[in-house]
Computed example of a mutant assay.
Amino acid sequence: MRTHFAPWAHAPVRAIRRGHFWIPGERVTSGGRTCQRGPMYVEWEAPESVTRRWPVVLMHGGGFQSTEWFDTPDGRPGWAQRLAEAGYAVLVVDRPGHGRSPYHVDTLGPMGPPFSYEGGRQIYFPGDDARHTQWPFAAHDGDAMDAFIAGYGPLPADLEASQTMDADRTAALLDRIGPAILLTHSASGPNGWLVADRRPQLVRAIAPIEPMGPPFATIPNIGEMRWGPAATPLRFEPPVSDPAMLRQARPGEFRLPSLAHTPILIVTAEASAFAAASPPTAAFLNACGASAQVLNLADRGVHGNGHGLIYEKNSDATLAPVLEWLASLN
């Protein structure tokens, strides 16, 4: 007899407040009618008593959606719940054109390619690195893989326009809620610097989890990081009109004043191929006057992780050093 799926049967009762709202997009004309371009869905949750000074905004990775922060593929509580349990108000966004933030090509432009099973295996699954032991389901578990891939959609084909919209909407979110901490994952990593560049007085800290990079990289099926740590321009001093100026510059020749006083903790995993992008990213930011540090989880005794460290089997352990760092900010 088939066993029915009832995830609520054994889930603990939670005393938590939650809700959602939208950061609207611009009104645009399409086909002679008025439409909205690129709204951003925001879901929030908070403990009965918020004990931490600043809320945390969680931004998901490329092609995925906010659900990556809520629950793990094997059904355990994700980072959003754990942060709320630690006393934080938590806001989780669906970046424009992802998840519950609607996508239409007439307002957002062409889509990139669909996300493939092969891409999912290459990015997340254990490969030849025997250290990667924490992936939450077996490679031959087809049902689990189907459920995992179901949450992915295409990215906008124009990476620069997508990052610009992400940063603009998140800046509008901070205008509404006030100062906050940004936690990004993978492709949303550049959004951390871009939002701080727009609202330096409202970004209290940034914790990028294996951010997309390294500077000036061309990311397959996604786009080019033309402006160093991002695909879209940042406000360098002295001003930069052509990204080629940055490629040719000596370290320290250009600065990012908006990041000068923003704590940045870049988190990497020992068995992730994407971890190699983080030290060059930190070096670029620091040469521009930032104070970015790289935390390799293995150096803190957290082993076995790949790029999906936020929802692997030991996700509570991967969060622990981040929680410790966040607590030191208050």
Score class of each variant (00 low, 15 high):
Thr3Leu: 10
Arg17Cys: 06
Ser30Arg: 15
Ser30Pro: 00
Thr34Gly: 02
Gln36Tyr: 08
Tyr41Ser: 10
Pro47Ala: 06
Glu48Trp: 02
Pro55Met: 06
Pro55Glu: 12
Leu58Ala: 03
Gly63Arg: 03
Ser66Tyr: 07
Thr67Ile: 10
Glu68His: 02
Asp74Tyr: 08
Gly75Asn: 09
Gly78Ser: 13
Arg82Pro: 00
Arg82Tyr: 01
Arg82Leu: 14
Ala89Arg: 15
His104Tyr: 05
Val105Gln: 14
Asp106Lys: 13
Asp106Met: 03
Thr107Lys: 08
Gly112Ile: 06
Pro114Trp: 05
Asp128Arg: 07
Arg131Pro: 02
His140Trp: 07
Gly142Glu: 15
Ile149Pro: 04
Gly151Ser: 12
Gly153Cys: 02
Ala157Met: 04
Ala161Phe: 06
Ala161Arg: 14
Met165Thr: 14
Asp175Thr: 09
Arg176Pro: 00
Ala187Trp: 05
Asn191Tyr: 03
Gly192Thr: 10
Asp197Val: 02
Gln201Thr: 11
Val203Pro: 08
Pro215Asp: 10
Pro215Met: 07
Ala217Glu: 10
Arg226Asn: 05
Gly228Ala: 12
Pro229Met: 01
Ala230Asn: 07
Pro233His: 12
Leu246Thr: 05
Ala249Val: 03
Phe254Ser: 11
Arg255Gly: 01
Phe274His: 11
Thr281Ile: 10
Thr281Arg: 00
Gln293Asp: 14
Asp299Met: 01
Ala317Tyr: 05
Thr318Glu: 12
Glu324Pro: 01
Leu326His: 08
